[in-house]
């Protein structure tokens, strides 16, 4: 299993290896390795059913694991009593008693852990829900419930924050607020493990990304490294659309070429190849009206990696991290 970070268990907020969960014949999580350095924001991505939430549930002690060992915040993975008081979590969406107000829902939790009631007011202010604190949660929008869920996860001033789809249902302003909040928390030393299907969010928030596919790590490293593992495309457009075939013939000298429906020709290559194509096309009498490099996005990297088996997908990581 590829692991790119230098493993320093004493410093890592989460350092687990071989994490496994089996449901009948299906291995929902299969030998997962996860390292989260303190004060970093790590994104957990993967297709539906990849095992992200199952992995988080195991870390939070909600489900029994069938394999694996490691530490969370310096405590053994089995020692839930040792580390869970220092963990804040929002998993599988915000869960609250609908007929209670937001404040009372938080009081259920503050009293459970022996915090003063004023702590509920503090976190409600932090997520800007103070003016609706006395309203029943059943009157809240999904976005407001999400903010309340984040507030609940912050109650204990956690050292580790585990958030499952934290921006789900939020409007663009809310998404930005969550993004800023997570960055601020990370700057204050809080370690954040965030699972999301919004890859743009992961790209904007996270230092590192862990891609889970079929229960295994498909990639673990920097966001830049994940994207960098994918090859850029040179895209060229002839000034005269009738010369598209001629341009494709010229481009074929540089690699396998694709003629696109939008009147462009593309092939794998970087800036230097683009310059060579420009010269070659000019020499062949084909003038270009457009020439550029199409950099892969995290989304493209995600699809490229998830279409491979986890073992195959592991190779770009090493390139990206080198």
């Amino acid at each position: 299993m590829p692991v790119t970070e230098t493993r320093t268990p004493n410093e890592a907020a989460v350092d687990v290896t071989g994490l496994a969960k089996v449901y009948g014949e299906r291995r929902a999580v299969d030998g997962l390795e996860l390292v989260l350095q303190r004060g970093s924001v790590v994104g957990l991505v993967g297709p539906n059913g990849a095992g992200k939430t199952t992995a988080l549930r195991m870390l939070l002690g909600l489900i029994q694991r069938d394999g694996g060992s490691g530490t969370v915040l310096g405590s053994n993975l089995d020692d839930h009593i040792g580390y869970l008081p220092k963990v804040g979590a929002l998993i599988e969406g915000p869960a609250f008693t609908p007929s209670l107000s937001a404040r009372k829902n938080l009081l259920v939790l503050t009293r459970l852990v022996g915090l003063p009631d004023s702590r509920a007011d503090d976190v409600l202010a932090q997520v800007e829900l103070s003016d609706r604190a006395k309203d029943k949660v059943k009157t809240y929008s999904l976005g407001m419930r999400q903010r309340l869920g984040i507030a609940a996860s912050l109650l204990t001033d956690p050292e580790l924050l585990v958030l499952d789809e934290p921006t789900n249902g939020l409007d663009p302003a809310g998404i930005r607020e969550v993004r800023d909040l997570l960055r601020q928390l990370a700057d204050e030393g809080v370690s954040v493990l965030v699972s999301s299907h919004l890859l743009a969010e992961i790209e904007a928030i996270c230092d590192h990304v862990v891609l889970i596919n079929q229960g295994q790590v498909g990639y673990s490293g920097t966001v830049k490294g994940m994207i960098g593992g994918q090859v850029a495309q040179v895209v060229a457009r002839p000034a005269d659309p009738d010369r598209l075939t001629d341009l494709a013939a010229v481009a074929a000298r540089f690699g396998e070429t694709t003629t696109n429906d939008d009147g462009t020709v593309s092939f794998e290559g970087e800036q230097d190849v683009a310059a060579q194509l420009n010269q070659a096309a000019f020499d062949a009498g084909v003038l270009l009206s457009g020439l550029g490099i199409l950099r892969p996005t995290l989304e493209q990297a995600f699809f490229a990696l998830t279409e491979k088996s986890p073992a195959q997908a592991a190779s770009p990581q090493e390139e990206g991290e080198s």
Binding site: L62, L84, I91, F96, V108, V113, A152
Partner: peptide
């Protein structure tokens, strides 16, 4: 789903 909130804490 509030059982999760209780058990995590």
């Amino acid at each position: 789903g509030t059982i999760r909130n209780l058990l995590i804490r």
